[in-house]
Design a protein around this nucleic acid. Sequence first.
DNA 1: TCGCAGTATCATGCTGTCGTTATGCAATTC
DNA 2: GAATTGCATAACGACAGCATGATACTGCGA
Lengths: 101, 101
Amino acid sequence: MEALADYFKVFSEPNRLTVLEALRSGALNVTAVVEKTGLSQALVSKHLKLLMIAGVVRRRPEGSLVFYEVIDKGVFRLMAQAEKLLMAARRQQLDDLAAIF
Amino acid sequence: MEALADYFKVFSEPNRLTVLEALRSGALNVTAVVEKTGLSQALVSKHLKLLMIAGVVRRRPEGSLVFYEVIDKGVFRLMAQAEKLLMAARRQQLDDLAAIF
DNA sequence: TCGCAGTATCATGCTGTCGTTATGCAATTC
DNA sequence: GAATTGCATAACGACAGCATGATACTGCGA
């Protein structure tokens, strides 16, 4: 339970999801992620490190650049499924509200 | 991105997952959840409230008791998929480690 | 109606995490 | 080898979320 919660925690941060999203279409170096997301360089570095520790992302130095890429694109399926559940939950809540009137 | 992160946050807490797990087999009242999980009553109440606000759980007062139940069991599929990804990530990390030697 | 069992909430202390700024370090270029 | 670029990390302040203990609320039975 503990480990699973920690794994979910990886995806529980908006900026981290933004970073992940930036990597959806393939590997990018840090600066590219910074430009694509608009986040500060330090912040991007930290989130990428966390994603690496979590085993979500792979680090690949290439010359003076460092590329990161998503290891298992299944994480995007996880995100999609969560989004689906989220929207269903919202719909349900609206229905509940409507049932009051 | 923000909303999705908040949704993931719901599942990023061990005790909250424990509460959810307690409800896997069906509706329970608060005290039953307390007994099943070993968590304090105040804590269970708060987590259940959060789960309700998130639209994961439904609240149903019945006499002097209050029953809670999971609205969409799809959340358990989400958890299962996350667990699968988690284990795959771990395996990958071990492989990476082994590749060093 | 009094008391009790079940549930919710409040106030508080604490810990963890986030973001920023500044700095360190490594590889490249000149 | 000095300067520059790309990335990582440290230190710090701010804030959010968790757990606890105490207390309030609610409906039911005696």
